[in-house]
Amino acid sequence: MKPFAYARPGSVAEAVRDVAAEPAAVFLAGGTNLVDHLKLGVARPDLVVDVRTLTSREISDLPDGGLRLGAASTNSEVAADRRVRERYPVLAEALLAGATGQLRNTATTGGNPLQRTRCVYFQDVTTACNKRDPGSGCSAVGGYTRHHAVLGVPAALPDPTAPETCTATHPSDMAVALAALDAQVQVLGPAGERTIPFADLHRLPGDDPSRDTVLEHGELITALDLPPLPAGARSAYRKVRDRASYAFALVSVAAVVTADGPGSSTVRIALGGVAHKPWRATRAEQVLRGGPLTEDAVRAAMAAELAAAQPQPGIDGGNGFKIPLLTRTVVATLRELVEATR
C-alpha cells in the first residue's frame, strides 16, 4: 500500500475543489471497493477525499412522482425504503442481490455504480491489464473469462497486446436496475452541476479501457433521480450466479414491463455481467415493442440483441454459455412478470 493523504473537507464544493486540484486524488464514500484497491496497489492515489458525510443521505420524493436518492444513502437503506420497494422493486431486488449485509450497510448510492470490475487480472498488479495499467495488454484474452463480457467486445479473441483490448464486465447489480429505470445522475464538478442519463454514465472500453465512466476528474455524484414508472408497470431483477449468495452475476436481468393494452406491452430490459457497462437491450426492446410478450417473441428479440455477441474462449470452456443463459434468464424473468400482471 502506498501512503496517501486523507482529507475530510467541510462541504461538497470543497471536496470537489480538492480532488480537482490534485491529479492523483480520489473520492472515498463507503470504501467497500476502494479500500481493497488501496491494499492491493490497484489504486495508488496521493490524496483520498472522504465525502461520506458530505453528500445527502436522504431519500426524498420528487415533484414528478419520482424519487431522489442522496449519494450517501446506503444500499441497505435504499433497499429497505418502502417507496423503493413499492414503486421500484427491481432496484430493491438488485440491491439485495448484491454483496452481503455488512457490505450493503456501508456501500452507498453514489459509490455502488462507480465500483470497478472484479476481473481477476485487473485486481492483480503482477499481471498485464489495460484498465489498471494502460498499454500493458490484457491477460484475460484466452484466460479466465467466466466473468467477462460477451457484448460490446469486438471479437471472440481480441488482440491481447493491443492497448484498447478489455473484456471486463461492470460488476454492479444496482447499476443494471438503474439502467432499466432510466435514472438520472446528478453530478457536481469543478465546472458546476450537470445531469447525466444513467445509460450514458458508463462507457464501453473504446480506445481507453482505463475509463469506466464519462465522469471527468473531480466530478462527484451527489444524487440519483428515479423517474416515475408508468401506471401499472411491473419490474423485477433476476441474478444468476455461481453460488446462492455473495457472488457476482454470471448474467443478470433487470426488466420493467408495462401493459399498453391487450396483447401489447412496452418492455425495458437491462443486462448485467455481460458487458463493460450495464447493457440496455435496446434492440430486443424494439423488437418487442407493441407486440405480445410470448416466449417465442422474447427468444426472437434476444436473438436480435445477441446477434453481435462474442463468446470469449478461455479456461474451463470460456464464457459462451452466457449467450443461451441470457436468453433463458430474460425469458424466465419476463414470463414471471407477465404472469404477475395477469
Binding site: R118, V120, Q123, G143, Y144
Partner: peptide
C-alpha cells in the same frame, strides 16, 4: 482453483472469486 496456464498461477486467488 482456476489455473491460468498463460500466467502460471491460480487466477481466482481470493475468497471473493
Amino acid at each position: 482453483s482456476v489455473w491460468d496456464p498463460q500466467v502460471g498461477q491460480v487466477a481466482n486467488h481470493d475468497l471473493a472469486e
